[in-house]
Nucleic acid binder design. Structure first.
Lengths: 242, 242
DNA sequence: CCTCGTGCGGCACTCGGTGCCGGAATTTTC
DNA sequence: GAAAATTCCGGCACCGAGTGCCGCACGAGG
């Protein structure tokens, strides 16, 4: 809440926190989550029990040590968006942030996935985290569609759809053990959502906000039922703007 | 799971369970959820502490005493569906079941809503319940769209959209204090989802027997430098083949 | 009358989580 | 460079949720 005000350049890196995470996962993986007590963790880490709860509000939090930061990044990313951006596209890019974070440490992500699949308590905790992401996306869409008819309904449903598509790709990748390129999978899934949500015609320069150089490629998504002249007109006007 | 095999006609009605629910809500409403201990509840109900956990696995469960039954109803409802039914429509009807259950006891639902809004622990518990509904809907859609391209992705996203629309209407109604007709609101919201998901099919008619739709969305990727007439020719020939 | 199954209450215990305090380390200030 | 203040850490004591176990009362059946 009121913890870190300025630390985008480099994290102070508290050593004790990392050692607690390491000790916790070592024990979780070798004897299971519920079979490991907090006392076991702090004994292995060589610190006091009280210090554990200084860095992690609960035992579950040690399993998801980076989500708080990622949620922060997403909030800032959405806050830094311009009014000219397409809201749905922006939200999809925000979801990509989460996937990127998982992809940074594949082995860690897969290990955690195994844990969350087996332990019911961790699953519900993960649900609460996912809910915060969805709420963040929904809040952004709500403000962008404030003047629109059924704006909040549209925002809620769209946020849920984006989260579902992201999780679909994420889980597929995690189930495969971290093989393949997860970013491509999530792009496919999100493009599917975007296609069903801007059905008349969506055209623009390809994804990845940070990636330069691909200005040349144009992606067009439409439906069979849309008349060809409408597609052409939409594409031409979109190209004209760029 | 393996508890009740046959009790659709009439519930055996354990008296102690109901008295525990009544005592719990009385205390929750007058001094708050976290300020009420299980000992307080069983003292007011005049039963032993051990009996509380016989009927409710956790303190949170007493707040949602009917969801287990409702989830059971939904599962049976979906299992009893015919292959001729439109999957999306069927799932929307299943979501209506949940709304109906809330609408049966408006005051109770509103009181519970107030609690879940304030207490974080109850919110996450509710999330886990909602997740089970979403999973049930998703499993049904997955089997119905097993042969379809991107069937599981489509199922996951559609289930999430239906749940989001349902929750949107539900929360609006709960926030209003239980005024108005909740079923109408949820119908509107679900129709919105159905419109964005089966746009070709008109509302009401069973339509679209699971054949069309998957290949409805067309994705075209090309370059800026490609002449428009080549793009059009390519798209038209590609559509002709399909 | 005895027995067996069941539902309930009453412990005693584990473990997650918190408040509080004292001490050590580190930084600030003169 | 020493004293003072702040921060960080460990060690309690404590609360409350949840569980295992045992004993007891009650009703059904031989």
């Amino acid at each position: 809440m009121a913890a870190a005000a300025t630390n985008p350049p480099s994290t102070p890196k508290p050593a004790m926190r990392d050692s607690l995470i390491a000790a916790a996962f070592q024990l979780f993986l070798e004897r299971g989550y519920e079979q490991t007590t907090v006392d076991d963790i702090v004994t292995l880490a060589g610190v006091g029990r009280r210090s554990f709860f200084r860095y992690f509000p609960s035992k579950e939090d040690v399993v998801f040590p980076d989500h708080e930061q990622c949620l922060d990044d997403m909030t800032r990313f959405l806050a830094a968006s311009a009014d000219s951006d397409d809201p749905v596209t922006r939200v999809c890019d925000a979801a990509r942030l989460v996937m990127r974070m998982y992809a940074e440490n594949p082995t860690f992500s897969v290990q955690r996935y195994r844990l969350t699949r087996e332990v019911a308590g961790l699953r519900t905790y993960e649900l609460s985290v996912v809910w915060r992401y969805e709420k963040t996306l929904g809040d952004y869409l709500r403000t962008r569609w404030a003047d629109r008819k059924d704006g909040t309904l549209r925002a809620n449903v769209a946020a849920a759809a984006v989260v579902a598509a992201h999780n679909h790709a994420l889980r597929r990748w995690l189930r495969s053990g971290g093989e393949g390129e997860p970013l491509e999978e999530v792009d496919r899934a999100l493009e599917f959502v975007r296609a069903t949500w801007s059905p008349d015609a969506a055209a623009g320069t390809g994804g990845d906000p940070a990636g330069e150089g691909a200005e040349d490629v144009v992606v067009v998504i439409t439906r069979r039922s849309t008349p060809m002249w409408r597609v052409v007109r939409e594409v031409e006007s979109s190209l004209g703007e760029g």
